[in-house]
Design a protein around this nucleic acid. Structure first.
Length: 213
DNA sequence: CTTTGGATCGTCT
DNA sequence: GACGATCCAAAGG
């Protein structure tokens, strides 16, 4: 863990000053997912010694959003989404993949931000071991299920508090600001509410899930 | 580079 | 019983 923090700093090559690592505030996350999502870009997702920088996200607006798992109300599966902000919502999909979300909004409001891609920062060897199918470094975490595989995130981590120092998975800020003007477009892989442009990504990041851009 | 289809099973109707 | 907030290998340009 101390290794991960140090590596995270060292991995931020290119940035001239690396701030110390701090978690975003719960108050910040307790607002709307659409407002929070683009501001999660460039934060770090840390799992043990494995660290990735968030480069692509999507917002899901709970019970009001036909594409959200929370549309239609609470179920055992989406329970975490209805809880407090800053917790990790992990779901299973396509019979074989796990995906990770940062819960947003006040308790009772099921908003969330799906983390779609990370740029690998530290713990690359472990990521390569966890992702035998990956051929290039940029494919290690270039998709919502790929990043869960790379960081070892599965059902066991559903509901954990990303802001707690004792959590196995944490959300941290190393001082790198979000892009002033991120790229924006429609969400991927959904069949309803396809018109909403609630996907944001770091322009030109090689680790973004599709096309790049 | 792009397109296509198979894998695989929890969840909710 | 149908459908995924996906990934990958294979095949074609």
């Amino acid at each position: 863990m101390p290794g991960a923090v140090e590596a995270a700093g060292a991995g931020a090559a290119g940035s001239t000053d690396v701030g110390r690592l701090v978690a975003p505030t719960r108050t910040f996350l307790a607002t709307s997912a659409v407002a929070v999502a683009p501001r999660l870009l460039n934060l770090l997702l840390v799992s043990g010694s494995r660290v990735g920088r968030i480069v692509e996200v999507e917002a899901y607006r709970g019970t009001e959003d036909p594409a959200s798992h929370a549309f239609g109300g609470p179920t055992p599966r989406n329970a975490t989404m209805f809880g407090p902000a800053g917790h990790l919502y992990v779901y299973f999909t396509y019979g074989m993949h796990w995906c990770a979300n940062v819960v947003c909004g006040p308790p009772g409001v099921a908003e969330a931000v799906l983390v779609r891609a990370l740029a690998p920062v530290a713990g690359l060897e472990e990521m390569w071991e966890a992702r035998a199918a990956a051929r290039r470094e940029r494919d290690l975490c270039s998709g919502p299920a790929k990043l869960c595989q790379a960081l070892g995130i599965d059902r066991a981590y559903d509901g954990l508090d990303l802001l707690s120092p004792s959590s196995p998975v944490r959300l941290l800020d190393d001082g790198t600001p979000p892009p002033r003007r991120p790229s924006v477009g429609p969400r991927i892989g959904i069949s309803r509410a396809v018109e909403a442009r609630w996907r944001w990504w770091v322009t030109n990041s090689a680790s973004v899930s599709v096309g790049g851009r």
